[in-house]
């Protein structure tokens, strides 16, 4: 096709082009996400709403004391779980429902007919999750601090832990969301397929229910999935160090958090690579 390629300004390398288009997609996706009222409520604000309800409802409950003998408030107790749940909601739940919808309403088909690289599309989705999860975590922390006087860590190394748990968690949840998006047959059935999965995970992983009070076999089931570990990593950041005694194994086990979450990240990436298609072929 010599007649046509001569007119094209092919100056950028394919990788540069992929990344440039991917970053453009991030902007586009984030804008679309925040214009979608229902997803903003059910995935973005949901953890904030629950943190508020639990903090108020259980304000007289005894959640234990920190090293200085101060009672741990309900807000402080639930904040780590809500941060972890936020990653699951904006990452897995929102991604799976959103992409299933895009697959059935023709968005992916249109993109598949355009020269947009698949990888740019992924960068866009990952960026959407990262930006919305960051804003969500910031909002949770602000509400916890200002409305419920939750003490935040003063040590830099604790914030480093928060950083890697957050980033690893966001990436893993996003990738699993993309992988999960192939399950629903239609966009309309997507919430019905996806929400039960994420809801069960939240209940068995120590988000709403105190993890240490679950039967051991259920704790072991939850330990297969990443949410339990993300919640545990977040608890290590925001709860007094003495609380590690009631975790499985009696420690925060941050190595376990990193290991199990990383395994799911790899599993998710492989699933995306193998299952993601612009359209269901020959459907």
């Amino acid at each position: 096709m010599t007649t046509t390629t001569t007119t094209l300004p092919v100056l950028r390398s394919p990788l540069q082009r992929t990344i440039r288009l991917g970053l453009g997609r991030v902007r586009y996706e984030v804008r679309g996400y925040f214009r979608q009222g229902d997803s903003v409520f059910f995935t973005f604000l949901f953890p904030v709403v629950f943190l508020t309800i639990f903090s108020v409802a259980f304000s007289n409950f005894d959640f234990g004391k920190d090293a200085a003998g101060h009672a741990v408030s309900a807000a402080r107790y639930y904040l780590p779980g809500m941060l972890a749940a936020g990653l699951l909601l904006t990452g897995t739940q929102n991604m799976a429902v959103e992409i299933a919808g895009e697959r059935s309403d023709g968005t992916l088909k249109r993109l598949g007919g355009s020269p947009l690289p698949v990888f740019s599309y992924f960068i866009g989705k990952m960026g959407e999750v990262l930006v919305s999860a960051l804003l969500q975590a910031a909002l949770l922390l602000v509400v916890a601090r200002l409305a419920f006087q939750v003490p935040l860590p003063a040590v830099a190394s604790t914030w480093v832990t928060f950083g890697w748990v957050f980033l690893l968690g966001a990436a893993t949840c996003a990738v699993l969301g993309v992988a999960l998006s192939v399950l629903p047959r239609t966009g309309k059935s997507a919430t019905a397929v996806v929400i039960p999965i994420t809801l069960v995970l939240q209940f068995i992983s120590g988000v709403y229910l105190q993890f240490s009070q679950l039967p051991v076999w259920l704790q072991n089931v939850a330990a297969v999935f990443p949410l339990k570990w993300l919640a545990q990593g977040m608890r290590s950041v925001f709860l007094p160090s003495g609380f590690s005694a009631i975790e499985q194994g009696g420690t925060w086990d941050l190595a376990g958090v990193a290991l199990v979450t990383s395994i799911w990240l790899v599993v998710g990436l492989v699933l995306c690579r193998v299952t993601f298609r612009w359209i269901r072929r020959d459907s």
């Binding site: 007119t7 094209l8 288009l21 586009y28 804008r31 979608q36 895009e102």
Partner: peptide, 23 residues
């Protein structure tokens, strides 16, 4: 047939797609 949710404006959508092409 297309039935996209269309949470972007006409100009945003065209600007986005125009970026995929070299000319």
């Amino acid at each position: 047939d297309t039935g996209e949710s269309g949470n972007v404006t006409v100009r945003e959508q065209l600007g986005q797609f125009a970026g995929y092409y070299s000319n």
